[in-house]
């Protein structure tokens, strides 16, 4: 699974929101095809970390490289990277004024410059992949939360990204819909795509992740394989956090 150059590289990355030091000296290497789960208490900077990868947030210090390209203010570089990185949000953020199919074909047509027919075909393939092809003509607000999130995943996949980022994808869903979304994510994971997932779903972490990272107060506190992480947590804070998460 380990290849020569990591696909994502954080080197001494620091970020501030005003005076608040939200990411402290992050050093992280993600290999191609690696699947990472990031967990931690709220406010620990986990969402900020992955949002730096597609430049939805800017870091002030340190070097962040994605697929060999360093992330700076260079707009061309940012656009190129966003084509390689797909993101799924907690609030789905589907475009309510477009049908499901139009949501999926928007970026391929306007960013990828792909003809409509080809874009439609690709979109239908992705909809089949997330098992929601029959809803193609519906509008997002006509679907349930779980269905909307699956459409959001399909939308991100339409650009055939090398990296998929998930920002608490199941946190806004009713319990009975979490499984359908996790199933899609598990299948994606098994197909070899690089994934970074911020989530509280520890079952998912145990079954799919190559590495689990625990963040607290802007730092990476501990990272390990799932077996070691859940079985033998090294830090006191990790143990504390796990006891709260796994209690129920």
């Amino acid at each position: 699974m380990q290849t020569a150059t990591p696909i994502i590289e954080f080197a001494h990355v620091n970020k501030w929101y005003g005076q608040f030091h939200v990411l402290r000296d992050i050093d992280l290497s993600v290999a191609r095809g690696e699947r990472i789960v990031i967990c931690g208490p709220s406010g620990s900077g986990k969402s900020t970390l992955i949002r730096c990868i597609n430049r939805l947030e800017e870091h002030q210090e340190g070097v962040l490289r994605v697929d060999g390209v360093e992330l700076t203010d260079d707009l061309k570089a940012i656009e190129a990277i966003r084509r390689q990185v797909g993101m799924v949000f907690q609030q789905f953020n589907l475009f309510p004024h477009l049908t499901v199919l139009e949501n999926l074909t928007l970026a391929p047509m306007w960013v990828g410059r792909i003809p409509k027919r080809e874009a439609d075909e690709r979109a239908m393939q992705q909809l089949v992949r997330v098992k929601i092809a029959e809803q193609a003509a519906k509008y997002p607000l006509q679907l349930s939360g779980g269905q909307q999130q699956r459409v959001a995943i399909a939308r991100a996949l339409c650009l055939t990204p090398k990296i998929m980022l998930f920002d608490e994808p199941t946190s806004a869903l009713d319990p009975e819909m979490i499984k359908e979304v996790l199933d899609v994510m598990i299948e994606l994971a098994n197909q070899g795509i690089t994934m970074l997932c911020v989530t509280h779903e520890m079952g998912f972490a145990r079954s799919v992740a190559d590495r689990v990272i625990f963040m607290d107060q802007g730092q990476i506190v501990e990272q390990n394989t799932p077996a070691e992480f859940f079985g033998n947590p090294k830090s006191e804070r990790t143990r504390d956090f796990l006891s709260k998460i796994l209690a129920h």
Partner: peptide, 15 residues
């Protein structure tokens, strides 16, 4: 228009 719409559009690479 919710801010999430801007984020989704940016994440998709739209100018």
């Amino acid at each position: 228009v919710a801010f999430g719409q801007h984020e989704a559009a940016a994440a998709l690479g739209l100018s």
